[in-house]
Every structure is written in structure tokens, then in C-alpha cells.
Amino acid sequence: MKLETTAGALKGALSLMSKVVPRRATAPLLETVQFDGATLSGTNLDEYLSVQLACTRAKGRAAILLRPLAALVRHVGRDANISIEAGAQGATLIFPGGRYDLPTVEWEALDPSGEFSTEIAVDGEAFRDGLRFCKAFVSYEDTRYYLNGICLDEGHMVATDGHRMGVFPVALSAAEMGRPIITTNTVALLAALAPAKAVRLDTKRQAMRFTLPGMTLTAKLIDGNYPDWRRVVPDTAGAIEIRADRRVLAGAINRMHDVLACAGLRRHGVGIAYDADGLVVCGYTTIDLPVLAREYLTETATIGVKDPGSIEFNARYLGAALAQFDHDDVVRLMVSSPGSAALLRGAGAPYAVMMPMRGGASSDLALSTLKDWTHAQAAA
């Protein structure tokens, strides 16, 4: 193999390869980046990535161990010219003032099998936005492996871990698409890359192929049945609606989360109490270190509130959900009852479903704090 390119071009391509090629593998070939002319490819057997390299000369094939090659190129100036010659005895990389001999592995095609004949019509920008929104709600527990990804279901992208759920409406059009589930690793890859120009599903619905600018990613899907997520979406007709400044509410939730975590409580709740005039957020723990946290959020609007009420959420889950609405100044939290799921959304179509914590004392504390604060305001 003979290849001539620049260090900057090769560095960018190898950086992409490192997202797929494993550091350690049972087969040495899986630790390599495969050169086939101007095409670089790598795989971990679940994802297969091929990238087109900008070069002045590209001929032949070679499989070079990725880690030493990437480590070397990382320390070469971006504009420096690089030439690589590879054969059965190894590869030689030459740049101005340097010559390195690197190990190779016998080249063998690792192209993914499958007939990707089903095209899914999708807007690349919207598809990537949906991946970025939903990935915060993906489960990482092995017991329910079918939740370890994002499901594409009739115009929606959905992810849940059983405690919270993210739903991103997006136009998806394909004949007999089914309900494919994209794995967590693939989601992370696609969310970090340029928007896909084309998406195809193989005939057996076991893999998807994403065509992106200058590259192609083929990824296995999760073999499982996604649950009926629509059943847990709450009916918000007649629900109480709390409108709050997203930054103010997120700031209060995140402060309480961090302080209570330092006090030794791993999974702690924050209680939110509301009446017609405002909002109180509370949290406390007596484990290791006693902490009592209370914040009064007066710049909120509550709609449909007849009597004061309260609800409790996992602080980390609620803070992470609020972070997904970073383009919204105001968020709306719709609560039907303290024990049922609540719906969180901004001005757009995406929304989150949050399951409340049961049996927690923070919601009771928030409600009593709200009453004390209301009495103090009236007395003043």
C-alpha cells in the first residue's frame, strides 16, 4: 500500500476511527484501521465505520494497528505531508524529519453483511436533534436490554429507563419500518457527527446504515421489543400547569442535588410544592450529615391550582431532564396528581415524562414550608 496525505487529514480520520475500533480485542484485526485506497474503515463488530480520506495518492490495502498510528500522527504538525508504505512486514510512515516503522496485521475484509433496501426518509438535522435529546433518558441496565437505546416509532424517537422518558416527534417515513431500536453506542456516535444524509434499514431489520458527509456508519440494532411507551404518557386535560424560568428552576434543583449528595444521600428527592402564588423547592437528609435545603421561587406562574399541592422527583433525573430544554427560557410542568406521572415540556414539540418518587418526605416538607412562607407573606 502507498498513501500520501497531510497529518491534519489523517488525524481527523483516525479520530473518527477511535470511536469504533476497540482498544483491546480478541482478534488483532479488530484493533486495526483498514486502508483500502482512500477509504479507511474500522469495526467493533457492532458498528462499522468507513471514512473517505483526502489524499494525493492512495493505492493498495493494509491493516495498521490504530493506537500507535494515531498516537504518532497526533504529534505531527497538521500541515505536514505524510506518506505511508505498507506490506507484509509492516508499515513505514514518513514525515519531514521522521521515519517510523509500525506493526500491521494481515488484511481481511470486515464489511458488514446485509441488504439495506429500506430507505427511511428523515430530516438529518431533526434526526440528530432527536438523538441528542433522547440519549439523556436511555437506560444502562442490562436486565432490560431493550431499553439500552432509542426506539423509532411512527414519527417519534423515544428513550426511557423506567423512571423518566424523553419523546422527540420527528418525521419518519418508510414502508414496513417496524420499531427499530438504535443502540446507546450508535446514538453517541451519531449525536457527535454531522447530520445523516440518508438512513437505510436492512431487510431483516437487524442493522441500519447511516450515510453522512464523507463517511458511512453501519450499526447493529437491539434485538428486542420496545414497550408500549404511549401508555405512560399522562393525560394533561385538567392538570395543574407550573410555568417556571428554566434556568432558575434548574439552578435550584442542581444546587440541592449537589449539596444533598455531599451529605451522603445517593438517591435523593426534591419536593416541589405549589399554590396559586408561587413555588417552593425543598430537600433534606439526616444521613451522615443533616442538611435542610429550601428555595422560594416567586417568579413562576401556576395555572389551574385550587388548593396547595406537592410532588417529589429524583433530583438528578429532574435536573438532567431540564438540561435537555436548553433552548427554552420557560418550561411547563404539568401535574395531574402527586402520585402520577408528570409531563415536562418547553415551547416545542419534544417532551419528557417524569415519574414521581413515592413515600418521600421532601414533598411533605415542601408543602409545610410553602404554608409557612405564605403565612409569613400575609403577616408582612
Results as ranks from 00 to 15, higher is better:
96 P>T: 09
96 P>H: 14
97 G>R: 07
98 G>F: 10
98 G>D: 07
98 G>W: 12
100 Y>I: 08
101 D>P: 06
103 P>D: 08
106 E>F: 13
107 W>R: 09
107 W>I: 03
108 E>R: 15
109 A>Q: 13
109 A>Y: 13
110 L>A: 08
110 L>D: 07
114 G>C: 04
114 G>N: 04
114 G>M: 04
115 E>A: 15
116 F>Y: 14
117 S>L: 11
119 E>M: 11
121 A>V: 06
122 V>K: 00
125 E>S: 13
125 E>A: 12
126 A>R: 05
132 R>V: 05
134 C>Q: 01
135 K>P: 02
137 F>Y: 06
138 V>W: 09
141 E>W: 05
141 E>G: 08
142 D>I: 10
142 D>W: 14
143 T>P: 04
143 T>D: 10
144 R>A: 13
144 R>T: 11
145 Y>Q: 07
146 Y>V: 03
146 Y>D: 03
147 L>P: 00
147 L>G: 03
152 L>E: 05
152 L>Q: 05
152 L>N: 06
153 D>I: 00
153 D>V: 02
154 E>S: 11
154 E>V: 06
155 G>F: 08
155 G>K: 11
155 G>T: 03
156 H>N: 06
156 H>F: 13
156 H>Q: 09
157 M>V: 01
157 M>Y: 03
157 M>L: 09
158 V>M: 06
159 A>K: 07
160 T>Y: 03
160 T>R: 05
161 D>G: 08
161 D>L: 09
